Each structure stands twice: as C-alpha cells, then as structure tokens.
Computed example of a mutant assay.
Amino acid sequence: MIRIARQPKWILLLLFALALAAVFAWLGKWQVERAVLDSQAASSLTEIAKPLIELAKPGGPIPITAGGHLTTVSGAFDPEGFVVLTGRLNQGKAGYWLVGRLLVSNSGDNGDNGDAVAARGPASVSLPVALGWAPTQDALNAALAPEKAAAVAGSGSTILISGRLMPTEAPTVPKPTGNPFEESTLSVASLVNVWPNYSGTSFGAYLIDDQGPDGLTTIDSAPPENSATLNWLNIFYAIEWVVFAGFAVYFWYRLVRDAYEREEEEKTLSL
C-alpha cells in the first residue's frame, strides 16, 4: 500500500486533500473566532467616550446601549442646583454624594465655548452630575462651598464634563421617622422636585464625573459587566469543518486503499 501511495498521482491527490483539509481547518478557526467575538459584550465599546447628544436625548429614558457608556458634555452648573445624597457606597464604604444640576449647552457636544442654556429658561435641559463622594457630611459641605462659588462666578459660561452615563435610579419613600427631604437615590424624577425653580426637560440619566472637585473622592464607576454567552451555533459549525478536514484526508486514504485492494485482487485472479 505504501508503494501505491508513493505513485505521483496519489501524491498529487494527497497534496490536494491536505490543501482542502487546510481550507476546512481555516473555516473552523474562523467559526470559533466568530463565536468568541459574538460572546464579547459591547462593554469594550462603552470605554470609547462619545458626546452625550449621540447617546441619549432629553425628555425620556436612555437607550440600553448608552447605560455605562463614557461620554462628554458641556454646560454650566446651576448654583442652586446642588443636592446631597446620603447612604452612598464608594468602594464598600458608606458616605455622601454631591450632585450638581448641569444646564446642558445648546450644542450638547464636546465642550465648545458656546453659551449655556439659560439657567431657568423654558428651553433649559438639565443633567444630574454626581461630582464626588465624601465619608462625612462635614467633608462634603467643605467641598460644596467652593463649588457653589465657582458656579456663581462662572454663570453663563460652559465647561466640559466627562464621565460615565448611568440610567436614573428609582426614587425611594422617606422613612416615617427620617428627614422627608433627604435623598438617598439619584432619581431624576425626585431631583426635578428638589431643584429650585426647575423648568424645561431633563435627561433620564445621570453622569458620574471622572474628575471630582477638590476635597471629594472620585466616585467609583465600573464598565458594564459582560453578560453575553458563546454562540454555540458557530461552535457547531466549527466542529463540522474540522470533521470535513479529517474526512478529506480519510477520503484520500480510502482511494489508495481501494487501489491496493484491486491490485491484490487482480494478482489473485491471475494465479
């Protein structure tokens, strides 16, 4: 059989079978790569910052794909729109958040020097911005004072804010024995009732600032978790291509085997 397999025609057929098997193996590899790519969550894309206007529109909930996305937005802080949230965890420690009301600029893009929307005008668009975290109320108040002063001094001029966009949280009912005006969740629906002289519209989300003010700790914000799974249909196709690759070599073997058996049969009959 080895003698037959060394014949030129069978060597050429073997090379063809090996080339065919290589193509099938490559197709199997491609199917596996497709399965892995399909299993990767879009979270990798969320780490590429986009202007807020490209991710969400004011006046309604944000798309699922926008949640956890890095973004940039320009606007001016309302000096009277700062709110303190209690019971907020940061790296496992309970404390306080300082949240500001950003009046988004007309462009709503990546921080040009255009005019901000009028603070309490009918066309104002608000975006809550979680500026930073503090372990105590005193530490937060110490950072709040200069923030208010800066907002007053910079009234009407835009600044660039960058961070991670998060969907609004659900409002909570105050405890009967607690402070009815105390906020513990970043709910846009609650904030619009807390902001003085609020008018206009708001984004159904908030921004976690990635560069908090002095005296506050930057709020920890992780990218969305990968919840995707492998595409098993692609895995099945990959297994099929591997089987085809093996069959191409086996088919060559069977042809050589058949040729050998015919030759042996002819020898037997000739005796």
Results as ranks from 00 to 15, higher is better:
220 D>A: 08
157 S>C: 01
137 Q>R: 01
224 P>Q: 06
59 G>R: 02
26 W>D: 12
199 S>W: 08
48 I>H: 11
18 L>P: 02
267 K>D: 15
60 G>L: 07
62 I>T: 04
271 L>P: 11
255 L>K: 07
66 A>E: 03
64 I>D: 14
142 A>W: 04
220 D>Q: 12
72 T>R: 15
188 V>Y: 04
146 P>S: 11
208 I>Q: 03
114 G>F: 02
75 G>A: 14
37 L>W: 07
121 G>T: 05
11 I>K: 13
48 I>L: 15
53 I>E: 10
29 K>E: 13
8 P>C: 09
67 G>F: 07
270 S>F: 15
101 R>E: 11
241 W>L: 12
232 W>T: 15
68 G>C: 04
118 A>E: 09
97 W>C: 00
64 I>R: 15
86 T>N: 04
5 A>D: 08
24 F>T: 03
2 I>E: 09
226 N>M: 04
128 P>T: 11
169 E>R: 02
123 A>I: 06
177 T>E: 09
46 T>G: 03
200 G>V: 06
12 L>A: 15
180 P>V: 00
93 K>A: 10
197 N>E: 13
217 T>V: 12
169 E>L: 05
35 A>H: 02
134 A>P: 00
127 L>N: 03
62 I>A: 05
24 F>Q: 09
236 F>M: 09
34 R>V: 01
99 V>Q: 05
235 I>G: 11
145 A>I: 12
